[in-house]
Design a protein around this nucleic acid. Sequence first.
RNA 1: GCGCCUGUAGCUCAGCUGGAUAGAGCAACGGACUUCGAAUCCGUAGGCCGGGGGUUCAAGCCCCUCCAGGCGCGCCA
Length: 507
Amino acid sequence: MMSAKLFKMSPRKVAEILKSHLDNQIDWIEKIDIAGPGFINFFIKPTAWYPVLHDIHQKNNDYGRCDIGKDKIVQVEFVSANPTGPLHVGHGRGAAVGDIIGNILSFCGYKVIKEYYINDSGRQIKTLGRSVYLRMLDLLGRTVDFPEDCYQGDYILDIAKDILQSKGKELGEWDTEKAIVYCSRVAADVILDGIRTDLRQFGVIHDTWFSEQTLYDEGKVDAAIISFKNKGIVYEHDGALWFKTTDYGDEKDRVVVRANGLTTYFASDIAYHKDKVDRGLDWIIDIWGADHHGYVERIQSVMKALDVDIQRLDIILIQLVSLLRNGEPVAMSTRSGEFVTLKQVIDEVGTDAARFIFLTRHYDSHLDFDLELAKKQTNDNPVYYVQYVHARISSILTKAEAEKGITTIQPSDSGLERLTAAEEIDLMKRLVEFPELIKLSAQMKEPHRITFFLMDVASLFHAYYNQHRILSDDIELTHARLYLVSAIRTVIRNGLTLLGVSSPHKM
RNA sequence: GCGCCUGUAGCUCAGCUGGAUAGAGCAACGGACUUCGAAUCCGUAGGCCGGGGGUUCAAGCCCCUCCAGGCGCGCCA
C-alpha cells in the first residue's frame, strides 16, 4: 500500500501483481490472499514451523541469543542510592529494571558493566554522621536537639549503639567535628554493606562500585572544572562558577562551585560522566528515578560539551512505585523514618515474585505494588502462572521417563508433521518470535516485553495442555509432542533466566 | 507559571516503534478434575483508546490545543 503512490496504481492492483509473481513460487506457502484495501495474506504451511523446534533443541540455553552488540562495551548504572539509609521499594524497581536490561544486552552480545555510583561525599553524608552522633550523645544521657533535617530512622539508632559498643564512651569526649566525620564514615560503610547484602538477596550483583569521593581524591572534579573553564564553558558570576548549559538547550545555567567554595552535586556528576567517557565506554545507560528528570538536560549538556555523540548516552527514568496492602496504600514517610524497605518486601513476597512484578509494567508507568497480591499463588500473580508452565512440563518429562521409559526424545519427521492442532501451530509461531523479541527488548531497552511474552506463551501452553494429552499410547505422536513441550520449557526458562527469576521443576 | 511522564473495558495494564473487526488478567455470571500437576482451562458479557482540531490511502500510536492525575523546577542531593 505504501508503494501505491510510487507506482501510480491502486493498492489492490499492486497486490494482485505481487501475488501473481509469488504464487506457487515458495514451497512453505500454502496460499496467498488479498484482503481489504490491499493487504496480502500469506498462509504458511504447518510444516514450515517445525524447524524452530530443532533450532530450540539445538541451541538450548542459547536460543534467543544474538550478537547485535558486537562486543561493544555498555555500562548500565543503576540503583546508586545514597548510602544514608536502606533501599526501599522504589530502588527495587530500578534494581530490577537495570539488572535485567543488563542481562538482555549481555545476551545480545554486548560487554555489559553493571555499575553502582556511591554518593559518599557531600552534605548528606555529613548529615548522616551528625544524625548518628546526636543519637549517640542521646544514648550517653546528654539532652540534645534532634533536628528535623536529620535522618530519623531506627537504623540510625542501631548504628549509634554499635559505634558506642565498639568505640566506647570516649567518642563522646572527642572534638565534635572529628566525631561526626568518624560517624559519617562508619555509618556510610555499614549502610552500604546493608545495601550490598539486600541487592545480593535480590539477585543483583554490580560489577563495579564507583565512589564519588574518589573523584575528589584523585582531583578529577577539579580537573574537569578547569578543563571546561579553559574552554569557556565554565565561567564565574556572582562569586560562583557556572556551567553554560544554556548553550546546549538547558533553560538556565547551573552552578558548579558555590560562592562559599563548595562544589555542587552537579560538579562531581560532570567529573563522573567525563570519567565514563574517558573509560572508553561505547554506550552509557543511566537509570534514574523519574523524580530526577529535571537533571537529564544537564547531563546531556555535559556530553555535548565533551563533544560526545549524544547517542552514546541513554537516560532511563523509572516511574515511582506505590506500595499497597490489599489495595490500601502503605504509609511511607522518609522524614519520620517509617517506610517499608526492599528487604522487608522480598522477605515477605520472595525475590522471584518481586522481580517479576516490577517488570509487569513499562517503566514509564506508575506501579502499584500490592504486597498481598504478590504473595497470592493464583492467576492474579503472573510469576507463578509462568513458573507453573516450567514445573508442569518438567513433571510431564519425568512422567514420560517413569511410565513410558522415554529418556531421550526422538521425534520422527512424520511424527512432527502430526503437530497440526491450532494450539500447536500457535505455540510454534510464538516460540519462533523469541529471538526477535529479545532483540527488540534490547534495542528499545524495554525489559517488560519479555514478561508479557512469557505470560502469553504460558497462556497458550496451559490452554494446549487442557485440550490435548501429551503422553499417550501413540508413541510417534508422544515423541513429537514431548519435543514441542520441552522446547516451550526451554524458551520459558531462557526468558525467566534473563529476568533473574528461577525456573522451578516443582512448586 | 514552565518542563517531563501518564490517561485504552468496572479495576490493573499490553498494544511489536502508522496498518485490517483495539487485546490480556482481575472482578461478575455459567461450565470442566476417575485420565500427564485445577497454582489450570472453556464460555458469556464488557470500549467515543481523556475532549477537540490536524497530517495520512490508513492514527490508540505522529503534530497542535485543552482537561485530569503524578513528578520535577535551589549557589540541595
